[in-house]
Computed example of a mutant assay.
Amino acid sequence: MRKWLVPAMLLCLLAAGCNTVARNETSPSPQNDNRVRAQQSSPQKKTIGNPKQVAAHLESLARKVPGVKGAHCVVFQNTAVVGIDVAGNVDRSRVGTIKYAVAEALRKDPYGINAAVTADIDLSHRLNELGADIRRGRPIAGFAEEMADIVGRIVPQMPRDVQPMRPEPQTQAKQQLNQHL
């Protein structure tokens, strides 16, 4: 009985797999689809041609939001990062609300649709410094310096990784000479 069971099952599976017949009524083709299709209603991201002008535009949009004291924007290729300054006495939930309002304002703009918004004081300050470096004509050096500072703050310092400073060889020779005299 077992001898016939495995071949019979294989035969059934094979027969079921070969039984698919193309039926026109099962799935309509896209050419015959008479349903209404909606266009994308949110603004599409535009290619940034003049980064300085776009940065100034996004900063002005962010400053118009109530609760924003200042805004700093850096545009790199086709991406913008906007740092906002809020009053120091504002509680965390209110800061989140202000940041959300800025994101809503930027969402309505084709240049700001994919911008990143931060309310972190340190990052906002670093964005300001990076923008100043870009205006001074040193975008790559300024970016590298600021990224090094940001990463340096993020990476923790582990006490076991700290090596005691060793005196330089010249200093050791001078100390030995002074001890003999």
Rank of each mutant, 00 (worst) to 15 (best):
Q39T: 13
R63E: 10
L61Y: 04
N78Q: 07
K45M: 14
Q39N: 11
A103I: 00
K99V: 12
R2D: 14
I48R: 00
G17C: 11
M9H: 14
S60P: 01
Q53V: 13
L5Y: 06
V74H: 02
N89T: 09
I48A: 04
Q40L: 12
W4K: 13
D85E: 12
N89P: 00
Q44I: 11
S29G: 03
S41I: 14
F76K: 03
V6N: 11
A22Y: 12
V21I: 13
A55S: 08
R35H: 08
P30Q: 14
L5M: 09
T47P: 03
V102C: 02
P7V: 12
K108G: 15
K45P: 07
A71K: 03
D120C: 05
D109P: 06
Q53G: 11
L61N: 04
K64S: 12
S60G: 06
V65Y: 06
Y100D: 13
N50H: 11
E104P: 01
R107E: 08
V21Y: 05
V36R: 14
N114H: 09
H72I: 02
R107D: 06
S27R: 14
A55G: 01
Q53M: 13
Q31M: 09
E25I: 10
A119P: 06
L106A: 02
V74A: 05
C12V: 15
A56C: 05
A71R: 02
N24Q: 14
A38R: 08
V117Y: 01
T118R: 02
D91E: 10
K99T: 15
L10H: 07
L13V: 15
V75W: 11
Q77H: 04
K64L: 05
L106W: 03
G70N: 15
R107M: 08
R63S: 11
A105G: 01
K108M: 09
E104C: 04
Q31L: 12
V75T: 13
A16E: 15
A71P: 02
A56V: 00
L58C: 03
G70R: 12
V68Q: 01
P7M: 11
Q53S: 11
A105Q: 10
G88E: 07
W4E: 15
T118H: 09
T79M: 14
R23I: 07
C12T: 15
G96Q: 04
S60V: 01
I98P: 00
H57C: 08
V82T: 06
C73E: 13
K64P: 06
I113N: 08
H57K: 08
A55F: 00
R2A: 12
N19R: 09
H72M: 10
S27P: 00
R23E: 12
V102S: 03
Y111T: 01
K52R: 11
E104D: 14
A80M: 02
K64E: 04
I113M: 10
V21H: 09
I98N: 01
P66W: 10
I113Y: 05
P30M: 06
L61I: 08
P7I: 10
A119K: 09
P28V: 10
N24H: 13
A87K: 06
V82I: 06
G83P: 05
A103N: 05
P66Q: 15
L10Q: 09
L61S: 05
T20S: 13
P7A: 09
V21F: 12
S41M: 11
P30E: 13
Q39G: 12
T118Q: 04
H72Y: 08
